[in-house]
Every structure is written in structure tokens, then in C-alpha cells.
């Protein structure tokens, strides 16, 4: 093995371990979030019971089954990431988004598939991260998932999603004691929406370290807004959105590895 290959391998290896760990944690925490959501609000119960005339017992049986299977899968892949289980998690997460569209009943529910893209992208990004030869695929799956999530949230913000207005007004009041009026919240949302869309596009065409730092920060703040708005009881809503800030972290790790790799080989290339 040449020096060059050896250093490259070691860089990829170090990076992959960090990325794999972050993604394993992401998928597991996300599964806990889905479990909590399924056990309290439910994904399937109304869809089956109200829309499709299943008995309530049948509908809740499916809901419970789904919740426990997702939780078990999340824990299993944290202990040992098996590709087949990760595919299953991704499919079940996607299915929950699809059911949200079918069931409706909350603002912009028909946008659930792009809005939750980071959720079902995270396990897929992990599958590719497990194979050193497919790191680039892992990077692109994470990028696409994150891009869709940020872009969709950006458009929702531009259209003044009512819950976003309430996050701003109540969180502002809880954290600073400031009374923010609706029109001010809407102006703020317009700016936020625009920034989200710019970030979503930037990571596709012009990935830049500071953008990833911003997305980690902003993904965390927006996920945590559920708690700053309504209190710690909303932790499930926060957990389910962990990928909003861990996927930019994954991209940052990949990006830094890439930069390090380039700077090491820059003198050799000259």
C-alpha cells in the first residue's frame, strides 16, 4: 500500500466511524421519536378506523405493532447496523409520511414526503456510510434528504405556516418575555423561509463549511422550538426531528474530510 493510499484510507476510515456513529444515533433517536408519536398521536389509527372502517381494536393493534417494530429496529441498528433493518426503517418512516398525506388533518399535510425527507434519508445514508466505497452515495443521500426538508420548511415559512407563527410568538414570549405580534412574526418567517431555501440550494450546488454550521444550529433551534413553545412534554416532537441537525453535521464531517484530504495532497499534486 502506497503512502498516499494509506493516508487516504485512514482518513476515510476515521471519518466513516464518526459519521456512522452520528447516523446510528440519529436513526435510533428518530425511531424513539416515531415510537412516541405513534403511541400518543398515532399514524395509522384514524386512517384505518375512520377512513377505512377497521374496528378501533384492529387499528390500534396495527399502530402498536408499527410503534414497537420501529422502536425495536432503532435499538437494534444502534447496537449493530444491519443494512436490511436500515432499509426497513427507511420504508416504515416513508410509510408514516405517506399515511400523513392520506389522513391529512394538519397544515401542509400533503407535503409530508418532502418535509420528512431527512427522516427516511438518514437510515439510507447510514447504509452507504457502512461501505467505504460508497461514501459519496452516503453524502448525496444525506444532502438530498436535507435539501428537501429545508426547502419544504422554507416554503411553508414563506406561506406563513400557522404553527410556525405560534412557535415564534410563544417561544419569544417564553424565552425573552417579549410580546411579538403576528405581523412581526410573519416578517421574521419570510426571512427564515428565504434563508432555508438558500441553504437547501447551497448544499446542492455550492457546499460551504459555514452553511453546514448554520444548518446544524438552525436545524437544532427549529426542532427545539417545539419545546421552547410548549414545554418539555414536547420532547418526542424534538427527537423525531433529530436528523434536521445531525445530517448537516454528517455533511460537515464528510466535507472536512474532503478538505483535509485535498490539503494533504495539494503539495504532492503540484
Amino acid at each position: 500500500m502506497s503512502d498516499k493510499t494509506c493516508i487516504k484510507y485512514s482518513l476515510i476510515h476515521d471519518c466513516s466511524i464518526a459519521v456512522t456513529k452520528v447516523l446510528q444515533l440519529t436513526v435510533m433517536v428518530q425511531c424513539i421519536g416515531i415510537f412516541l408519536h405513534s403511541s400518543s398521536i398515532g399514524f395509522f389509527t384514524d386512517f384505518l378506523f375512520v377512513n377505512h372502517s377497521f374496528t378501533y381494536q384492529q387499528a390500534t393493534a396495527v399502530e402498536n405493532m408499527f410503534a414497537w417494530v420501529v422502536l425495536a429496529l432503532g435499538i437494534a441498528i444502534f447496537i449493530h447496523p444491519v443494512k436490511l433493518l436500515l432499509v426497513l426503517i427507511s420504508v416504515l418512516t416513508f410509510l408514516s409520511a405517506y399515511i400523513q398525506i392520506e389522513q391529512g388533518g394538519f397544515p401542509f399535510s400533503s407535503w409530508a414526503i418532502p418535509a420528512t425527507a431527512s427522516r427516511y434519508a438518514a437510515p439510507l445514508a447510514l447504509i452507504f456510510a457502512l461501505n467505504c466505497n460508497k461514501i459519496h452515495l452516503s453524502y448525496w443521500v444525506a444532502t438530498l434528504g436535507l435539501c428537501l426538508t429545508f426547502a419544504t420548511h422554507g416554503i411553508k415559512a414563506l406561506l406563513f405556516h400557522p404553527n410556525f407563527i405560534d412557535y415564534i410568538i410563544t417561544s419569544g414570549s417564553n424565552l425573552t418575555g417579549l410580546e411579538i405580534c403576528q405581523s412581526a412574526a410573519e416578517i421574521l418567517l419570510a426571512g427564515i423561509g428565504l434563508l432555508d431555501i438558500i441553504c437547501a440550494l447551497a448544499i446542492l450546488v455550492y457546499p460551504y463549511k459555514r452553511i453546514f454550521y448554520w444548518m446544524i444550529f438552525w436545524g437544532f433551534i427549529t426542532a427545539f422550538a417545539r419545546i421552547t413553545e410548549l414545554g418539555i412534554d414536547m420532547y418526542g416532537e424534538f427527537l423525531i426531528r433529530i436528523a434536521h441537525f445531525t445530517l448537516p453535521l454528517v455533511l460537515l464531517l464528510y466535507f472536512e474530510k474532503e478538505q483535509k484530504h485535498n490539503s494533504i495532497y495539494a503539495p504532492i499534486a503540484q
Partner: peptide, 19 residues
């Protein structure tokens, strides 16, 4: 409840797919 779930889950998922 969980036992019932287990018994019927396969058929329910099959039916959901059809629906």
C-alpha cells in the same frame, strides 16, 4: 392487545397495502 396485534398484523399490513 399486543397478542392480538401480533396475530393480525400480517393480514392488516397486507390489507393496508391493498387499500
Amino acid at each position: 392487545m399486543f397478542n392480538n396485534s401480533f396475530k393480525h398484523c400480517c393480514s392488516y399490513f397486507f390489507i393496508i397495502t391493498i387499500i
